[in-house]
Amino acid sequence: MALLEVQELTIRFGGIVALDGVSFTVGEDDLVGLIGPNGAGKTTVFNVISRLYTPDRGSVRFSGHDLLKDRPAGIVRRGVARTFQNLQLFPHMTVMENVLVGTHSIGKSDVFSAALGLPQVVGEEHRLHERAWSILELLNLTGVARLVAGALPYGVQKRVDIARALASRPRLLLLDEPAAGLNPAEVEHLAELILEIRRFSNASVLLVEHHMALVMRICQRVVVLDFGKKIADGTPQEVQRDPAVIAAYLGETAEAH
């Protein structure tokens, strides 16, 4: 059984069909790329999986469980964490605090015992701090741990976003355009980082990305969307040769822009 099963997803905004019967799966220990031209519906897929949108039709199952029954705050407890295309950090908090909020879902203690500062709560907070710190080390962020996140360079903020998502100990990590806005050296580093993250966390990764070289290099499988429909699904080599994909990216009449 696949870890994530997306079936026949359809969602309309007014008259626009943003997703039209999209189905795909992500297996255990998989690294799947989700690509397509602008407006193809990639981020919409993410927003459905993380329950920001409710689809008109279709189902999303995560290790057998119907995700559409959960509230947004419940998704992360199932083991699904995401990053954002346009950064959604907590801008006035430090990097460390951002990552600690990411651990929120794995703490067991409830609000009231935490407010009383019971010993096991203190022990748990200590463990969460250690976890947060080890993630900061992994993402090479220990040097900025005490700095306010919103004031950092864009590329660093993107890593904080990934660190925060990773902090929840996800089984599936949704990365929304992690390479957007990065310079070539940073993209090179990102590829290594994603592979390293997988070794660290054993999480499957679903990667939305425009940077083709990155996708083709690290992904095991690639799903291609165009105008809300899936047009291809296969290995990077298969997808690159697919005439429908070539047409979608270059335009059928190959108009120059």
């Binding site: 920001l52 995401r82 959604q88 600690l100 909020v101 929120h104 407010a115 907070e125």
Partner: peptide
């Protein structure tokens, strides 16, 4: 405290806080 942190997160970015598993209403 963890709860204090979650409260600040809810104030700064409710959507992101929810996706981190924070019960923003609470």
């Amino acid at each position: 405290t963890k709860v204090g942190l979650a409260m600040r997160a809810s104030t700064l970015n409710p959507t992101a806080a929810r996706l981190m598993g924070v019960n923003v209403d609470r």
